[in-house]
Design a protein around this nucleic acid. Sequence first.
DNA 1: TTGTAAGCGTTATCAC
DNA 2: GTGATAACGCTTACAA
Lengths: 352, 352
Amino acid sequence: MSGERVRRAPDTRLSSAADVAAAAGVSTATVSRTFNTPHKVAAPIRARVQDAAERLGWTANAAGRALASSRSYIAGAVIPTLDDQIFAAQVGAMQAAFATAGITLFLGCSNYDQTQALVHVRAMLARGVEALALVGEAYPEEVFTAIKARRVPYTVTYTHRPDSPHHCVGFSNRDAFHAITRHLLDLGHRRFGLIIQPTQDNDRVIARVAGVRDALDEQGLGLRLRHVHEGPWSIAFGRTSLRAIMQADGPRPTAIVCGNDYLAIGALLEAQALGIRVPTELSITGFDDVAMASQTTPGLTTMWIDNAEIGRLAAQDLLACLAGETPAPRPPLATTLIGRGSTAVVPHGQGG
Amino acid sequence: MSGERVRRAPDTRLSSAADVAAAAGVSTATVSRTFNTPHKVAAPIRARVQDAAERLGWTANAAGRALASSRSYIAGAVIPTLDDQIFAAQVGAMQAAFATAGITLFLGCSNYDQTQALVHVRAMLARGVEALALVGEAYPEEVFTAIKARRVPYTVTYTHRPDSPHHCVGFSNRDAFHAITRHLLDLGHRRFGLIIQPTQDNDRVIARVAGVRDALDEQGLGLRLRHVHEGPWSIAFGRTSLRAIMQADGPRPTAIVCGNDYLAIGALLEAQALGIRVPTELSITGFDDVAMASQTTPGLTTMWIDNAEIGRLAAQDLLACLAGETPAPRPPLATTLIGRGSTAVVPHGQGG
DNA sequence: TTGTAAGCGTTATCAC
DNA sequence: GTGATAACGCTTACAA
């Protein structure tokens, strides 16, 4: 059977532009033009080619097309995880925006692991992405050198630092948490607890903690170690953390800042389970404004970010790059404090 | 400036295998072998080539590679939306499984629109995906003919019909809702309400409604039109639907079956707002077992599906196809009824 | 408006 | 174990 040493059995071969050309009685150049620059082909010939293509079920082979035109019509997004709605929303909107421009999106989840992120970026570059969006900027240097070596436009999302070397589409995580903390300070709170996601390899969470500390520091206040809990962003971790904080020795905090709404909902539920009245005895804040945040009793004071808008704008800027433009640096996006029932003025005599 | 009519300015050109070959003093064939079949290259030469490649920052061009090897190392997933955690979980797991096999994943969201799904499938096929996973099977015929014309292996997920013409990785939506309804029937309920997602173009939801109707039918029961509400799967729609059902003329239902947990949480909250005691006066069921389902008071009786497992298994079967195997048809995956506090025996005297 | 033909950057075959 | 060289399927100057 050595006669069969062909790359692909003949009966398995898909039709090529040459087949279509033959069927339509034209050259492959005309086939190409029919689909890429139809106005350059006479109508009757165009019709003949389209007909032949349809009959043969032909669509241009992506590899050949990419090789000849050096366009892949592919972009890539690297996010920590789809389990968190905020990234899911971002990717969904980005995918939609790219799709309207004829660009298909690769998805890579790093699971908050820099190494996995690097592997995804490498794989995407190797597959010829024309643009790349990355959540955050806490990546190994090689991520950025590899991207730059390929001259692929990229943007960093969900975060914004004025002095970042990268194009950013996001908000200042530090300022957002500074504002939340200020809100509580303005209500008279002086003793704070903090329940937050893992800071490891996560520039956004690190910035959030800095925002809280800065706001407190401006008032000469600080966080006690036993009132700070760092762990998985789950309702369960919110519960156990709240319990631990409220049962620790010494004066209790009157306000708990949480890194996201899940942690805050957990804290709220646990406070209620402990018989601590919210907001009378304890104020609690979240972040993200998930659907449940408005449904708890009391409603959760939180901060709303337009994650879909982040995805859309990131795609928009990257598409501009592909069009040869240089998008202007973006100012940080707005964050909106949503005041609900879970925060109130500090209990009488506790404003110390 | 007509002298610049080059496809790419020379200083912009990335290095090619030929450059690496020249730098290492070997042929391009050896460069290729060094990275694809290293054992076929003598160690010292291999080292020289790797060194040269690293120095020049070279990685094989995807298009050239795909063209020559007819492998793209790309698969695609088409889902309705990432806004729903169940699909996000599925895609996340699928992406991870493919990544370990060196396959990068395209993501396309149809927004429950068959036309958009078709556009995504076409785009992915045009970009040379080696395999495809689709949520559900309610697509225009052209989706499947296009996939088959390209001879791309594919699977349908999140659903399972014994007589489906497609490879399925999922569960029986009909049987799952039949089981939920049976659970309520066994508790003595005879009057049911149904709050469900849009059935349009959604084979899963249609099957769920059929499951409820079949279970009721077996007892000679039916659903009253005014007790059936179809709309967006949001907490808000759950609330308004529950209110409308309970305020409709005639005898009230004693059990409300909801198409997912969000609808059920809305129904539960609204029942409480109306002063209707759950489960004493009214039983409510959800579907999916989202994080909040165990945190409401009472906890929500719901059904758990291992969505990540669906994604993993789908990837596994598709990878098997790429390896030349033919995966066996899968039996439907298990669904697990999670009994919590939102369901109880029918109120005395209401069992019809 | 259309055809000719030269790439695009790999991989795979074959001869050495 | 290594090097020539012919594909792979398309796009795009340029010529006609």
